[in-house]
Simulated scan of single mutants.
Amino acid sequence: MLAQIKQTRTLSILLVEDDPHFRSGLRTLLGGGYTIVGETNCVKTAISLTARRHPDLMLLDMKLEGGDGIALLQQLQERHEKVKPLVLSAHQEGSEISRALLAGAKGYVFKSQVAQQLEDAITTVSQGNVFLPPNVATPFVQSLQAVPRISTTPAEIPHLSNRELEVLQWVAWGASNEGIAKELFITTHTVKLNLEHVYDKLKVRTREWNEKENKFKTDKLVNSRVLAIRKAVKLGLVQL
């Protein structure tokens, strides 16, 4: 059982799930082996609870009030929160898994397999590794590798510095900004600065549309991380 997992200390978990019945089932499944520090179905509340209670893990649904799981993952990265998000989703498409991992998720479990896989997923993610169900790991990689290469001349390929290429490669492997900083022995600020340069050079900056004001939000970048990886793969700049 989950409660039998041995830890040096009790892991704290935040439940971010839209379905109250599924949340109740998670509480039962987790048993008494963990400290549940809060529950919510709202992006804004999840951010607030994370900042105030500093959970070790977040069990995260993709459908939420006030946004979605991807928006929440992106905000967690922007705020440099140390929580490790583990996505629990009904979506089984490789593209959805890719979006979640590139946005900062540390693992992905299908809701239909939660009872069988949650124990392994929590153990894997809490140890600093990425969890993917064995039956989806290969399709997920194939979905990324299926991106066609662009036929270009050397002059058409943007010049990225060695550091920018290093950072971009780690992003392609699904690492968070914090994880990249640790691997390259640099600060998260340096990682973010290099990514800003990458987005500019690859021309993948996209912005969220403000329908009320009929213009783009100047301070809201959307999916630049995902678009950068897709374009870098097409150009042959990184390997998956």
Score class of each variant (00 low, 15 high):
56 D>I: 01
230 R>S: 14
166 E>Q: 15
111 K>W: 05
209 W>K: 03
48 S>I: 08
178 E>L: 01
208 E>L: 06
47 I>A: 01
115 A>H: 05
36 I>S: 00
65 E>H: 08
85 P>C: 11
76 L>T: 13
140 F>G: 02
149 R>N: 10
1 M>K: 03
180 I>W: 06
206 T>K: 11
16 V>S: 09
140 F>Q: 00
21 H>F: 15
205 R>E: 03
227 L>D: 04
91 H>A: 12
18 D>W: 03
101 L>W: 01
109 V>W: 06
47 I>L: 15
227 L>C: 08
102 L>T: 12
44 K>T: 15
21 H>N: 11
175 A>D: 14
197 H>A: 14
116 Q>A: 07
204 V>S: 05
193 L>R: 13
64 L>I: 01
34 Y>K: 03
103 A>E: 13
120 D>L: 03
121 A>V: 00
48 S>G: 10
140 F>M: 01
153 T>W: 06
215 K>E: 14
19 D>F: 07
97 I>Y: 11
216 F>C: 05
14 L>R: 03
160 L>P: 02
155 A>Y: 10
238 V>A: 12
133 P>H: 09
26 L>G: 01
135 N>T: 06
111 K>C: 03
164 E>R: 07
38 G>R: 04
102 L>R: 14
121 A>I: 02
38 G>D: 10
147 V>N: 07
126 S>P: 00
203 K>M: 00
38 G>N: 09
5 I>F: 05
131 F>A: 03
33 G>L: 06
162 N>G: 10
5 I>H: 08
210 N>K: 00
208 E>I: 07
170 W>L: 07
58 M>C: 14
224 S>Q: 08
92 Q>G: 14
